[in-house]
């Protein structure tokens, strides 16, 4: 298989701060590749290097068989990019802005812009500065997808989108892959990567700390659980949770008939749920915390084993 993106020993320094320490990354053509890591891990730096928005301090980059540095404009016409921090200002209307960008990177097939906008629920007739964060993000997605580029580079593409639009976005990513396009997306939300990506690389502190098929990476282990239960003694729940391996920060408090439970679970979620269901569950939330914790956890374990 050919590689859509290949980097070797990629370094990027900003003054005395090193953002990337010798990054090696390989993305297969036609795959969906997820780049995850906590904020400041180097995801945005990596993606901006691929677009030649910034230049590497050292190392090699090949994108679609070409060099971003020397094949600049012709190469970028084959890439769709959503910046990590998309800001849109000015009186210009969405339609006019997209038209302008299409005149740089076109051709864009008839009706594509309208179809994408309708799919995401974006009003093209409004001045871009009046759009909400989510609507700006939709416009960012439209401009990245509209010219059906060979490669999509999406930096935190779902930030600000509501869950329904996020689902639509994931469908767009699957369709892009089915059409033979390659997708590289970054996120600090693990579940999003798990749903969308075939392969994943975990970045921390400017290095790849783990990579491989998304199914092989066992890092989805940290969850926060909060529940309100009745018809059970607080002590019973506390003891049951205490017996489950990997459960931390247990906080069980009785308030009248109610027992409020909070805990952090690392590992299997099933015994945790069973402990809670000793009573009657009145309310239950299981949250995936910010990826930071999972990745740092993984990082620490990798560091310990090597």
């Amino acid at each position: 298989m050919t590689l859509a993106i290949h980097t070797r020993a990629l370094h990027k320094r900003y003054g005395s701060h090193t953002a990337l320490h010798g990054l090696d990354l390989s993305v297969q053509t036609g795959s969906v590749f997820g780049l995850i890591g906590p904020n400041g891990a180097g995801k945005t730096t990596t993606l901006r290097l691929l677009l030649d928005i910034i230049r590497p301090t050292s190392g090699e980059i090949t994108v679609l068989g070409r060099s971003p540095r020397t094949d600049g404009a012709a190469l970028r016409r084959r890439i769709g990019f959503v910046p990590g921090e998309l800001r849109l200002e000015g009186r210009v209307r969405g339609r006019a802005l997209l038209r302008h960008l299409a005149e740089i990177s076109g051709p864009v097939a008839p009706g594509t812009i309208e179809q994408l906008a309708e799919r995401l629920g974006l009003d093209l007739s409004r001045p871009v500065r009046t759009l909400s964060k989510g609507n700006k993000q939709k416009l960012g997605l439209v401009q990245a997808f509209m010219h059906r580029p060979d490669l999509l580079v999406l930096d935190e593409p779902t930030s600000g989108l509501d869950p329904l639009v996020q689902r639509e976005f994931l469908a767009m990513v699957r369709e892009a892959r089915d059409a033979g396009q390659t997708v590289l997306l970054s996120s600090h939300v693990l579940s999003e990567i798990q749903q969308a990506a075939d392969e994943v690389a975990v970045l921390a502190d400017g290095r790849v700390v783990a990579d491989g098929p998304v199914s092989a990476l066992r890092i989805a282990s940290v969850r926060r659980l909060r529940a309100t239960v009745t018809d059970v003694a607080a002590e019973t729940v506390r003891e049951a949770l205490g017996r489950v391996p990997g459960v931390e920060d247990i906080d069980v408090a009785a308030a009248g008939d109610l027992v409020r439970v909070a805990a952090t679970a690392r590992g299997d979620i099933d015994p945790v749920i069973r402990a809670v269901t000793l009573g009657t569950v009145r309310d239950l939330t299981v949250e995936e915390p910010d990826l930071e914790e999972s990745v740092l956890d993984l990082y620490a374990r990798n560091g310990a084993s090597s």
Binding site: D52, I53, G72, R76, P83, G90
Partner: peptide, 17 residues
Amino acid sequence: ESGRLELTLAHGVGRVP
């Protein structure tokens, strides 16, 4: 500063043009 340059240059136009 407004982010317009990044978005424009991510498309098929070079710095010199």
